[in-house]
C-alpha cells in the first residue's frame, strides 16, 4: 500500500515536471511578444487620444479615484517638448458583463480629449455596441458612443439620457462607461491644475 502511494506520487511528479519544463519554454518564447503587444496597443491608444503629443510619461500613483465605483488603473502625461498637452487615464468600473476598462484623455483646457473603450464584455448587439465602430448614437454626425465624449467639458453633468446619449437597451453599460469618463475627467483636470498649470499657456 505504502509502496503504491510512492509509485503514484513519483509518476505524478514526473508528468508535472515534464509539463512544467515544456510550459517554461513556451512562456519564455511568447512572453516578450505578449508584453510587446500590450505596450504597443497602449501606445497606439494614447497616440490616438493625443495625436500632437511626442511622448507619454507614466505618472506613478499620484492620481487616485475619488469615488468608490471607479478605479484608476494608470495614468500618463502627454507631452510635446516641454509643454503638457493633457493627461490620459486608464480607469475601470463595474459594467453589465464584468469590469469595463476605458482610456480617457483630458486636455489642459478642461475638456475630454477623447475616450476609448479598452475592455468590455457585454451582450453582442446591445451593450457591446459601445465598442462597435459603426454603431452611432448620432447617425447624422456619425458619433459613436465613446466618441460623443470628445470635446466635452469636464464640468458637464455626465448624466445618461440628459447630456449623454445612451446605447439603446443598455442603460447599465451606458451609465458605467459614462461614470468612468466623468471621474477620469474630474481627477485628470485636478491633476493638470496642480501639476501643469502653465502648460496650456
Amino acid at each position: 500500500m505504502k509502496k503504491d502511494i510512492l509509485r503514484l506520487g513519483i509518476a505524478l511528479a514526473l508528468f508535472a515536471a515534464g509539463a512544467c519544463a515544456a510550459l517554461a519554454v513556451v512562456y519564455t518564447v511568447t512572453g516578450p511578444t505578449i508584453a510587446g503587444h500590450e505596450r504597443e496597443q497602449l501606445q497606439a491608444s494614447l497616440k490616438d487620444l493625443f495625436p500632437d503629443a511626442d511622448g507619454f510619461v507614466e505618472i506613478d500613483g499620484s492620481i487616485r479615484s475619488s469615488v468608490p465605483d471607479v478605479t484608476v488603473l494608470g495614468s500618463w502625461k502627454a507631452a510635446r517638448g516641454d509643454a503638457t498637452l493633457g493627461v490620459a487615464i486608464r480607469a475601470s468600473a463595474s459594467s453589465y458583463g464584468g469590469d469595463a476598462v476605458m482610456l480617457v484623455g483630458v486636455a489642459t483646457d478642461r475638456r475630454i480629449a477623447g475616450a476609448r473603450v479598452m475592455t468590455l464584455s457585454d451582450t453582442p448587439g446591445l451593450g457591446a455596441n459601445a465598442t462597435n465602430p459603426s454603431y452611432f448614437v448620432d447617425k447624422a454626425a456619425k458619433t459613436t458612443f465613446p466618441g460623443q465624449f470628445s470635446g466635452k467639458s469636464v464640468l458637464d453633468e455626465f448624466e445618461v439620457k440628459k447630456d449623454v446619449v445612451a446605447i439603446s437597451a443598455s442603460t447599465i453599460t451606458s451609465k458605467a462607461l459614462t461614470s468612468i469618463v466623468k471621474e477620469a475627467g474630474a481627477v485628470g483636470s485636478a491633476w493638470l491644475e496642480a501639476n501643469a498649470s502653465g502648460g496650456s499657456r
Binding site: F15, A19, A22, V26, T30, I34, H37
Partner: peptide
C-alpha cells in the same frame, strides 16, 4: 496535467501571435 499544459501553450501562443 497533460491537457492543461497543451492548453496553456495554445493560450500563450494565441496571445502572442493572434492577439
Amino acid at each position: 496535467i497533460v491537457i492543461a499544459a497543451f492548453t496553456t501553450m495554445v493560450d500563450l501562443s494565441m496571445q502572442a501571435y493572434f492577439p
